[in-house]
Each structure stands twice: as C-alpha cells, then as structure tokens.
C-alpha cells in the first residue's frame, strides 16, 4: 500500500468517524426530547396545581366556586371503578393466559383466540366505550354505573393481563412441568402447585401496569356517560348491621379522576384550570406510583429466581 493510498484511507476513516459522532449527538438529543418534554409537563403542571393541593382539595366535592372545589368524589370513584376492574379482569385474564399457554391445541380455535387477543390490544379505547354504551348501558340496562365502568375498563385491561400471563408462564422451564408430572401430579395440580406460584410475580407486574392504564383512561368512561358533577359518595360497601356488606355502590353514578380533570380543563377560566393541574398532579402520581411498584417487583424477581 502506498503512502498516498494510506492517506486517503485515513481521510475516509476520519470522515466516517465524524458522521458517527454527529449521529451520537442526534441519538442523545432524540432521547432528551422525550425526557425533557416529560419534565416540562410535570414541572408545568406542578407549578400550576401545587397551590390548590391541600387537604380540603381531597375532601371536597366539585363546586361552582373553584376555591371550594375538590376531588373527593373523583378519587373515591376511581378507587371503586378500579376495584371492579381488578375483580373482573384478573381471574379471567389469568385463566385465559393459562388456557392459551398450557391447554390450547394448535388448531383453528387456538389460532383464532391468539389473533383475537393481539387485535383487541390494538383497538382504540374509545371503541370499548361504544361497546359498553351499546351493550352494558342500553341492552343490559346496567346504567351509567360504577359496575358498567369497571367492566368496561376490565375489557380494556384484559389483553394486557393475558399477554403478561402467557409470557410469565412461558418463562418457566419444561423440566419443572415434567418433574411434577413424574411425581404423579395431574395437569391442573402441576399448574396450581407450580406454574402459577412461580410466575405470579411477573403476572402481578402486568396486572399493576394494566390497572395503572385503567386509572388514566378517560375516553371510554365519557362515552358511557360518566357524570362530571357528582356531589355525593356512593353507598358504603360496609354496613353496621347484617349482612355487613352491601353492593348498592355498584349501581351508583360516579365520576373518576381523569374525567374530573377533563371537565376542569374545558372550563375557560384559569382558576378551574389550576384545579385541573392539581387533579393532574394527583393522577400522574397515582399512575407513576403504580408503575414504579411494578418495576420494583420486576427488578426483585429478576434477582431472585434464575432458571
């Protein structure tokens, strides 16, 4: 190789290196765009909303006067709706995941359920609202109630629970199944005694992430006609006299955090918008806290069991 050629080569390499550095700058920038936006959002909302965050804000009903308005009915509503969602979505989601992973045969039914779950995960949330409006509210006459809202969100969360259950189950090595079977355990005993206990941690992270999404979900609940001005709490589920438990709250009308926030954002006066910001801070805190718990569980699990 002549000196001249070598020179050329060095120049070429220098140029390639230069472009690489430019790209790295762009790469970091594009990561930062997302992260800076996130920070801007959180800071902006906190500045607007912090003055309104007081004990009174959590313990007051919505009001025409912005300084008296609070989110009591909203956060109680969110908690009750999510409770219904969890009760409906967790058993059905885990059961479907187990069926698809452990029982489903490679036939048309298995294929259809499989494609169907992927598709459901991609359907816009507002469409679930239309289903709930047409089916739960109008056909089944469940009303614009906490029950309807919880069931609607559970349909939305279901694909997430199913997918994480399947992934968690798939991660368990086959040797565990064979070990249990060789001891004379039946298929269901194997699942109940081994597969489920060993995968429940990962399944739990999926459930929490799914429920966090349900907490922030607005559109389907507006569609079924959640009210924005609720100045009462649903019936308490606990009674002082027999049978101590009541299900009247399921039929109660409700509002939830994101709808309360949406309502305040749409008001023209800035005072209500700072109420919206305060509600937003609470809402983001709720969802981020749930996500953080999920990430923590995942982290702990990764350190504990190595197959």
């Amino acid at each position: 190789m002549t000196i001249d050629n070598l020179h050329q080569l060095h120049r070429l390499i220098a140029r390639n290196r230069f472009w690489e550095k430019i790209f790295i700058v762009f790469g970091i920038l594009s990561l930062l765009v997302g992260i800076i936006t996130l920070l801007a959002l959180l800071i902006d909302m906190t500045i607007d909303g912090l003055p309104r965050l007081s004990w009174q804000f959590f313990t007051s009903f919505p009001s025409r006067k912005y300084e008296e308005a609070g989110i009591l009915s909203a956060w109680v509503g969110t908690c009750l709706v999510i409770l219904v969602t969890a009760i409906a979505a967790i058993p059905i989601g885990i059961a479907s995941g187990i069926y698809l992973e452990e029982y489903a045969k490679k036939n048309w039914l298995g294929d259809i359920i499989e494609i169907n779950v992927t598709n459901l995960a991609g359907i816009p949330s507002i469409i679930y609202g239309l289903l709930a409006l047409g089916l739960f509210v109008e056909q089944l006459k469940l009303g614009r109630s906490i029950l309807t809202a919880g069931l609607t969100l559970s349909l939305l969360v279901l694909p997430i629970v199913i997918v994480t259950t399947r992934e968690a189950i798939r991660a368990i090595p086959n040797s565990i199944r064979e070990a249990a079977c060789a001891l004379g355990a039946s298929k269901w005993q194997t699942i109940w005694d081994h597969i489920l206990p060993y995968s429940i941690g990962s399944i739990l992270t999926g459930i929490i992430i799914g429920l966090a999404r349900a907490v922030g979900e607005t559109a389907p609940l507006i569609t079924i006609g959640a009210l924005t001005f609720i100045a009462f709490l649903p019936d308490s589920p606990f009674k002082s006299e027999f049978p101590y438990i009541s299900f009247n709250w399921l039929q109660a009308e409700f509002t939830v955090m994101p709808i309360q926030m949406f309502n305040w954002v749409s008001r023209p006066d800035p005072e209500f918008q700072s109420n919206a910001a305060a509600a937003g801070v609470v809402l983001v805190f709720m969802t981020l806290a749930m996500n953080a718990i999920a990430i923590f569980i995942r982290y702990r699990l990764r350190r504990r069991i190595k197959w």
Partner: peptide, 22 residues
C-alpha cells in the same frame, strides 16, 4: 428505557392539558 416507557404511561388527559395550556 423505563424513562421512555413512562411517557407511554402518563394518562392522555394529562397530555391534553399539556398540549392545550403549555
């Protein structure tokens, strides 16, 4: 990666607020 995933976890009504008022 988790930082980016937080972006997908923020409720959309909060994004609406952010778009409209910021």
């Amino acid at each position: 990666k988790p930082c980016l995933e937080i972006l997908a976890g923020i409720p959309t009504v909060v994004y609406g607020y952010f778009a409209y008022l910021f």
